[in-house]
Design a protein around this nucleic acid. Structure first.
Length: 104
DNA sequence: TATTTGACCAAGA
DNA sequence: ATCTTGGCCAAAT
């Protein structure tokens, strides 16, 4: 059994492009309520930033209210990536967040 | 082993 | 609408 953080990363990788998910959704999918631990796992997982090619798309993970929450490389970077995938961000919040929310 | 911290969440003031 | 409080869990110190 992989560690909690590994499972979190695995679920992130499952989120398709143009979609977003929430920390809560991930935790719930893991049968856990460790919303906070999810964020920590992602923060530790410094993924490769090579010309937009990322091993784990952590930028698709946002807060339950649609706000971006945080990002290890800066929220600005996160927004840029989301926009590139078709997820528009307005004033720090995901547009049509509930529509693009991915469910496992 | 114990305490603190954190990319959170929901509810109340 | 913003701010505070309490609760939750895992990883770091």
């Amino acid at each position: 059994m992989a560690s909690f953080s590994s499972r979190v990363l695995a679920l992130c990788a499952r989120v398709p492009s143009g979609r977003v998910t929430t920390y809560g959704a991930i935790a719930s999918a893991l049968k856990s309520k460790a919303f906070r631990a999810v964020g920590q796992a992602l923060n530790s997982n410094t993924y490769d930033f090579v010309s937009g090619d990322c091993t784990v798309p952590c930028h698709r993970v946002v807060c339950s209210d649609g706000s971006l929450g945080g990002f290890a490389y800066g929220v600005k970077r996160k927004i840029a990536l989301l926009e590139k995938e078709g997820v528009h961000v307005r004033n720090g919040k995901v547009v049509d967040f509930h529509k693009k929310l991915y469910r496992f």
